[in-house]
Design a binder for these strands. Sequence first.
DNA 1: AGTTTGTGTCTCACATAATGGGACGCTAGT
DNA 2: ACTAGCGTCCCATTATGTGAGACACAAACT
Lengths: 222, 222
Amino acid sequence: MGNTVGGVGVLDKAIDVLAALELQPRSLSELVVVTGLPRATAHRLATALEQHGLVRRDGDGRFMLGTRLLSLGQAAAETWPLATAAAVPLATLRDETGESVQLFVRDGEERVCIAALQSLHGLRTIVPLGARLPLSAGSAARVLTEDVGAIGEWAQSVGEREAGVASVSAPVRDSGGRIVAAVSVSGPIERTTKQPGKRYGAFVVNAARQIEVNAGLRGAGA
Amino acid sequence: MGNTVGGVGVLDKAIDVLAALELQPRSLSELVVVTGLPRATAHRLATALEQHGLVRRDGDGRFMLGTRLLSLGQAAAETWPLATAAAVPLATLRDETGESVQLFVRDGEERVCIAALQSLHGLRTIVPLGARLPLSAGSAARVLTEDVGAIGEWAQSVGEREAGVASVSAPVRDSGGRIVAAVSVSGPIERTTKQPGKRYGAFVVNAARQIEVNAGLRGAGA
DNA sequence: AGTTTGTGTCTCACATAATGGGACGCTAGT
DNA sequence: ACTAGCGTCCCATTATGTGAGACACAAACT
């Protein structure tokens, strides 16, 4: 049940355990129900993961994600120099627009959010760090799939990926002009209007420029 | 070699692979050298991890940490509500002092850094997110081990955990008065002087208060 | 008191599932 | 053409993880 063809069995199960703990801490019995593993197996895997620091336990003995994932997650984030270069520009973009902002990169046939800040409004869009979204919908998707300069300065979408949500995205290019990422602003249509590009386009483009500068991509380009 | 007594073999090796990729991307052959695994095994584990998104590959086929670790790391960070509550107070503390700042919690017989910001100076102390430090040295260690109110407002240490480094820490308490975390400022003795508490004590204590407020810990307490 | 049901933990005979030497196809360098 | 190095894949072998079941303990029953 649920093992990939060429997979390594133990690993599949171990990662099932981590996935089960991603949402909330769980007792062993809960873990058994959620993962569908036999009790002895779930216990052995969870304690093995614990020895490696990927899992830890609270006072009641419940399992939860461990400290090792902090450092690994940190290290993973650092493999995209863009993410750190984008921290400040994204913050100002969020403050300028008041809406949630994200940085996406293409990964295979999906796009991944490698940096995000949330709107301060009560009603806001949330795109968690590491989220994998389709390349088929959303303004960021359009930016990432348009290989060359077919798009203008920015792209917008209204209720495309999710009902009631509009977004504006601008490409981040390397010195050769290739699109390496997309900066996005997204929020409820009620606030962004149906022409979000008019309100936010300039801000988003500006943030993209800043990211290029911070990442040292602006050098030899045209 | 290097397998813990009660451990799960495959997991040990798989995590060795992740650890090897933590510092830098590596080709398969490099991976073999670093981990000491047979080529076929290293390859199988790395590709298995890739299927789960814990590992991805760059254009040259080299392995590096994957996007899944972003979301897991994020989820792990959220298991300490303190970490998010501390984000803003830590930033202001860093700006006020100009030095690196950290938030530590006790975990067994060690302490773990669950939030950190680095000094902007060229010479600075670095404590990476998720780092595990001893409970036997450093001002933060003293704060975390002193169970009740034996310490004053803050604790300081000079060249205790590491030569040339001084630090000041203040406890973060819950509504019952129990110490749940320690906020620290640390930097080279040359800048902090040998009485860092005099310079930074008030700031650190203030940051600790702010964190308590943000985390909703200040309610019923004395 | 006793009993039942729920924990988490550990063992151990068994066969599944991971192993790794070696083969294969590839590109780059000589 | 030859060599050297790479990533990938196969498959006989057996080491390895497996999981039903036993165990200890605690809480909530009767």
